[in-house]
Design a protein around this nucleic acid. Structure first.
Lengths: 198, 198, 198, 198
DNA sequence: CATGAATGAGATTTCATTCAT
DNA sequence: GATGAATGAAATCTCATTCAT
């Protein structure tokens, strides 16, 4: 059973994720990673072909899980607002689940990352595209059915994306200890969008 | 005419700001800065004691202008929502005014920045504290006066900060071409907070 | 007068040439080069972009000089054998002139040399092609005029190339102290090729 | 059946020979060898104590065979030129027989080869010494008997060695497709050395 | 015998910074 | 003020070799 006994590869991934999230890709050295993972530097290169590949691996894995979450969102909901509420819940849940990874994923691609396949850039673009499509569809339908106020769809979509991405990033920054944020965020958006509340 | 030729210092600052914003502090080399500023590397060290000081200088200057904007906000307004609307406007305006600087300022401190005076960290903390105070005051007053819904103040403040900081950062990321965002953001928040709209 | 005072670049080239010739490209480290040139390692990278480029630079320069010598050969000669004698003289002279460079040039391209422009490979090919053309022309004419024995031209050309390249390489190997080799080589070839000697 | 499975050792030797010949000793890694031999790296160390020993083993074996060929040359021949012709034939035949090994053997010792017993260096020296003795004896006798022209023996010997070693190396370089080279080389040397041809 | 995993030593390269001029 | 040249320190990565199993 080769590979069963050793979790060093996982140790490396975990250490790298923490450090990349805290210091950025360019700000993190392979020596730091090796120390945090309690291994020697070359072990990194035994398990990964390069620092860049270690990073893109983490990013890929993270986006895979994120997109899996998105795929799990129901296409049909009783109200259109439920879609938006689900999206808020999803983003706050995934931050709980993997705060550092998701912080990395929601950040810009490191300038010096060698990423010939564009793993980083393309995943970010896909993320934005999917959010945009999902939100645009929901908003347009909600407006058409009279559930939502007749807002500027494009700008509101952008605003909501900023909010969602902001939620992903703030946790990673550990700047604030957000409590009750999920309910608050949902209520905030509901009052803003949904018409007949009485 | 002393000072006429010294636009080189400004060239350096401008080049550094662009590069730091695009590539991060750790991802930007002094050689890149010197090339973009069309000078040689030692000139940087004539005008600045170190790369770190060049960065903190930009950050300081940026926060100084940002705080000056905040200081200019009216303490007294006809409605409490006006305060929030002003804040939104201020943030979108300053992004227009100095997109790269403000992106830098709204980002986390570089891990390897030598910043013994804590210029970077302290300014960010101050920014968050001031936003928190300003928003908390506004929300509490608005709720007390019956202008606002009785929301969870702390969580709503955090949410608004996330939104405001997100607005600062998104422009820097150039991910989206936001049009009509200012009015949309204001309306979004108004509907969410202000009670009697008819 | 920038660059006039410093001969460090030349020192590097000289040290590198010696070491590459003695130990091969893969067998020579930049540290060895820097020590032999009495400089520090990064100086190499100030003057050259990489170890590979240092090598290909030497090779280019060497072949340029070699081809210049070839260009200087007379197109018209009293006898065809003079052409071959000139070629022998040229090769032994250039070995005297730059023994290490010419040894490098006459050797195979290092396996791990990063040489995207194919400087190394292409120069060697050109060298062989030019020798082949020159010798083939000479032999065919000499045979046609009855100056030479009617030899197998292609095979004789190959043989002469092996001899010429061998002359270039042996000096570099310092295996033997060749004296009177020039006259001997010429006589050897003359007797072998030229018909009526009496 | 011991020895049936142990072709792995032969696989290693074969792979190493090919790679050493193509890339040099310093340019070849043990990983490359293990991959080409379709085994894992430690297997190399089961069969050989070190990469150096693998190389010197190949060299030893090659020279052993080469010297056995030399030993097989007749001491007595009808003419002295036959000796030289035999030598040419021998070298071209052994290149056919083991092109990569012989290329390695005819090349210089790798600079970084750990070879405390001097296997590499000493074999090369022995090779040159034996060639020199054999050729010197033949030439001197041939001149004394009036079979050969009265050439400069030392220089002619060197020239012939250069030619013979060149024949060994050129094949390895695969630069040219030599046809009819054996007869041509013999004729070339005969005309050059042997007096009365009619 | 064989292998997956690991490592010490060292190779190439980068970069902030300095210095002589 | 300005520059070409240089450097110490460190970063990424490689590789021959070993070891536990």
């Amino acid at each position: 059973m080769p590979g069963l006994r050793t979790n060093k590869k996982q140790d490396i991934i975990q250490a790298a994720t923490l450090l990349f999230a805290a210091q950025g890709f360019d700000g993190t050295t392979t020596l730091q990673i090796s120390k945090k993972a309690r291994i020697t530097e070359p072990v990194i290169y035994y398990h990964f072909t390069a620092k860049d590949q270690l990073f893109t691996g983490i990013i890929s894995e993270t986006f895979a899980r994120y997109f899996a979450h998105l795929d799990g969102l129901p296409q049909k909901t009783r109200t259109e607002f439920e879609k938006i509420a689900n999206l808020i819940a999803l983003h706050l849940d995934i931050v709980e689940e993997m705060p550092d990874q998701i912080y990395l994923a929601a950040s810009a691609c490191p300038a010096r990352l060698k990423d010939p396949d564009g793993v980083c850039r393309r995943n970010i673009e896909t993320m934005h595209r999917r959010l945009k499509n999902y939100l645009t569809g929901g908003l347009e339908a909600g407006i058409a059915w009279g559930e939502f106020y007749p807002v500027n769809v494009a700008a509101t979509v952008d605003l909501l994306i900023i909010l969602l991405v902001g939620l992903l990033r703030q946790k990673g920054l550990k700047v604030m200890q957000i409590k009750g944020i999920k309910q608050t965020a949902m209520d905030f958006c509901r009052r803003s969008l949904v018409k007949n509340r009485y």
